[in-house]
């Protein structure tokens, strides 16, 4: 009987002991987003503030536009040739330590931003190097045979040329349209197609923001949300812009599973052109709600330098990666362009 008590007591000592004697080895510190400083002898798991080197560079994607290989047709129309290659076997680190099988157009999610002027002939040479069938379905106006729905392109080298006249003016998504459609989209087969008006928009610091989500555990709920794929990226790599300079953002919502997404800008309001099809803004606001593939153009200038957040005001999304910062720098070249009233 005493033995039993000793055994019980001994085991309880053993259970308590390791928690007390835990060696305090080398300490690391990190700061939480509420400002608390935490010390640890282990490793830090921080998708928010650590600068991670990622295969896909959202910094580069942000202001990169593909204008195609230019030529002129017999009738004098501008022809723009693009090559887009689909793959579906890439494993990419999409957040520090988390690896996901992305399906890509030209190796990235989102695919390249294709840009043309209204009335140009767009010729997309599509090569499917994936293992599954894929297509490219452009939103916009084109013949039925160029819609990328009823002509699935076989994998391992299947080819197709999508050819149509660029239009209408605006910002449009393109994406794979092979069933099961949701799977092909959420794995990353999408990108942005911009059609500029012939008379051109005023010069601006232009950028593309694809709002997307990543369902890394395939439970039809997004584990991450982001602007341009990498969660929290523009929070730890703020987008640098200048005061009193026109900023133009082409925004496309590609989030699946959740019915809506939105974009809220801090310290400012933007002029909003839904789908970019009109040259006169429809709204002047700091909050726009976007459904699936809903998109538009936002224009604004910052008057005061400093750091300004932009994020989904569906706060769940922003706490899972859809948040970024504009770092506004004082622009010495351009003083206020505002008209002085009363002069």
């Amino acid at each position: 009987m005493i033995l039993v008590i000793f055994v019980i007591f001994g085991i309880s000592i053993i259970m308590i002991f390791p928690t007390i004697s835990e060696a305090q080895s080398e300490q690391k510190t990190f700061v939480t987003h509420s400002g608390a400083v935490v010390k640890t002898s282990g490793e830090i798991l921080d998708p928010l503030y650590t600068v991670s080197s990622v295969e896909f560079d959202p910094e580069q994607y942000l202001r990169n536009f593909e204008y195609g290989r230019l030529s002129v047709s017999e009738t004098g129309q501008t022809i723009r040739d693009y090559t887009i290659i689909a793959e579906d076997d890439k494993i990419q680190e999409i957040s520090p330590g988390i690896f996901y099988n992305v399906w890509t157009f030209n190796g990235t999610v989102p695919g390249p931003t294709i840009r043309a002027t209204e009335g140009d002939i767009v010729r997309v040479h599509f090569i499917n190097n994936g293992s599954k069938e894929h297509t490219i379905h452009f939103h916009g106006i084109h013949p039925a045979g160029m819609d990328g729905v009823f002509e699935p392109i076989g994998g391992n080298g299947g080819q197709f040329i999508y050819e149509f006249e660029a239009g209408p003016v605006g910002v449009h998504p393109y994406h794979c349209h092979v069933m099961p459609l949701e799977e092909h989209i959420v794995h990353g087969l999408y990108g942005v197609f911009i059609v500029d008006p012939k008379e051109k928009r005023p010069p601006a610091d232009e950028m593309v923001m694809v709002l997307n989500g990543l369902d890394t555990d395939f439970d039809t709920e997004n584990n991450f949300y982001a602007v341009n794929t990498i969660p929290f990226y523009y929070q730890h790599h703020p987008i640098q812009i200048n005061t009193n300079e026109l900023i133009r953002v082409y925004v496309v919502n590609m989030v699946e599973f959740d019915p809506i997404n939105n974009l809220h800008l801090h310290g400012n309001l933007y002029r909003y052109y839904p789908t970019g099809t009109d040259l006169i803004p429809s709204f002047y606001t700091d909050m726009i709600t976007l459904s699936q593939t809903e998109r538009g153009i936002m224009e604004f200038e910052y008057e005061y330098p400093g750091k300004y957040l932009f994020h989904a005001h569906k706060v769940e999304f922003s706490e899972k990666g859809w948040v970024g910062i504009f770092l506004v720098k004082d622009n010495p070249d351009k003083t206020s362009q505002k008209v002085e009233y009363g002069t």
Binding site: G42, E43, I44, L45, D46, G97, I98, P231, E319, G321
Partner: peptide, 21 residues
């Protein structure tokens, strides 16, 4: 396995893992 991220109520939080991930 490799522990990569922690969340509270499905909202991502920075964290530490001891002794290692």
């Amino acid at each position: 396995v490799e522990i990569a991220m922690a969340d509270v109520n499905d909202r991502i939080q920075p964290a530490a893992v001891e002794p290692d991930r």
